[in-house]
C-alpha cells in the first residue's frame, strides 16, 4: 500500500486531474469503496486500506492531500474513519460525495449491528466468532504498522522510496 514508486504506470495518469481535485469520481465508486472498507473494519486501523483504494489504486487524490486528511480526521472529534470518508468524499464529489462516502461506510456495520442486536444472546455464546474477529483486528493493526514503518528492501535500494507516502519529494509519486 502506498508504494507510489512501484505503482503501475496507469495508476495515476499524469494528467491535469492531479491539479484539479474535480477528477470525475462516480458516486457509485465512492459508495463501493467505502461500503467494503466499512464492512470489514474491525478494531480500527483503516487508513492503510483507504490509502490503498483512494491513492494507490484509483488516484483520486495526491499523497499530500491524503495525509492532510489523515491528520485532520485524527485531530477532529468523531470517528477517524468516518471523518476520513467525509474528507475523501468531499474532495471527490463535494457534499454529495461526502454524504455517500460516510453513509456507505456506516451501512454495512449498521446492518450487521441490527442482525447482532436481534440475536446477540446467541452471538455472545459463540466463542469461535470472538477469536476470528480478534484475528481480523490484529491483521488490520499489522496493516497500519506497515503503513507507518515502510522499511527498505534489500533487493532494491530504490524501494526505499516506498516511504514516499510520508514524503512529498518523490517525483514518481505524482
Amino acid at each position: 500500500m502506498g508504494q507510489a514508486d512501484s505503482a503501475p504506470a496507469g495508476d495515476i495518469p499524469s494528467s491535469p486531474s492531479v491539479a484539479s481535485p474535480a477528477a470525475p469520481v462516480s458516486l457509485f465508486a465512492l459508495w463501493r469503496v467505502f461500503f467494503w472498507i466499512g464492512l470489514f473494519s474491525f478494531g480500527g486501523g483503516l487508513m492503510p486500506w483507504i490509502h490503498r483504494e483512494v491513492v494507490t489504486a484509483r488516484g483520486w487524490m495526491k499523497n499530500e492531500q491524503f495525509l492532510v486528511g489523515v491528520a485532520l480526521s485524527q485531530i477532529l472529534p468523531g470517528v477517524n474513519s468516518t471523518n476520513m470518508a467525509v474528507y475523501v468524499g468531499q474532495r471527490s464529489r463535494g457534499l454529495a460525495g461526502a454524504t455517500v462516502a460516510v453513509v456507505a461506510m456506516l451501512t454495512g456495520p449498521f446492518l450487521v449491528m441490527l442482525l447482532a442486536a436481534l440475536s446477540y444472546r446467541i452471538v455472545l455464546g459463540v466463542p469461535w466468532l470472538h477469536a476470528a474477529m480478534a484475528g481480523v483486528a490484529a491483521a488490520a493493526i499489522g496493516m497500519l504498522l506497515r503503513f507507518a514503518y515502510p522499511p527498505c528492501r534489500r533487493s532494491s535500494p530504490a524501494s526505499c522510496r516506498s516511504w514516499s507516502h510520508w514524503r512529498h519529494s518523490s517525483p514518481s509519486a505524482f
Binding site: 488490520a140 499489522g142 496493516m143
Partner: peptide, 25 residues
Amino acid sequence: VIVGVAAVLTWRKKLHPFPLLIAGA
C-alpha cells in the same frame, strides 16, 4: 499477527487486505 501482516505487506506490497484479514482470523 501484527508483525506478520506488516512483514507480508513488505514482501507483497500490492496484496489486497481481504486475504490478510482472513488469514488473521
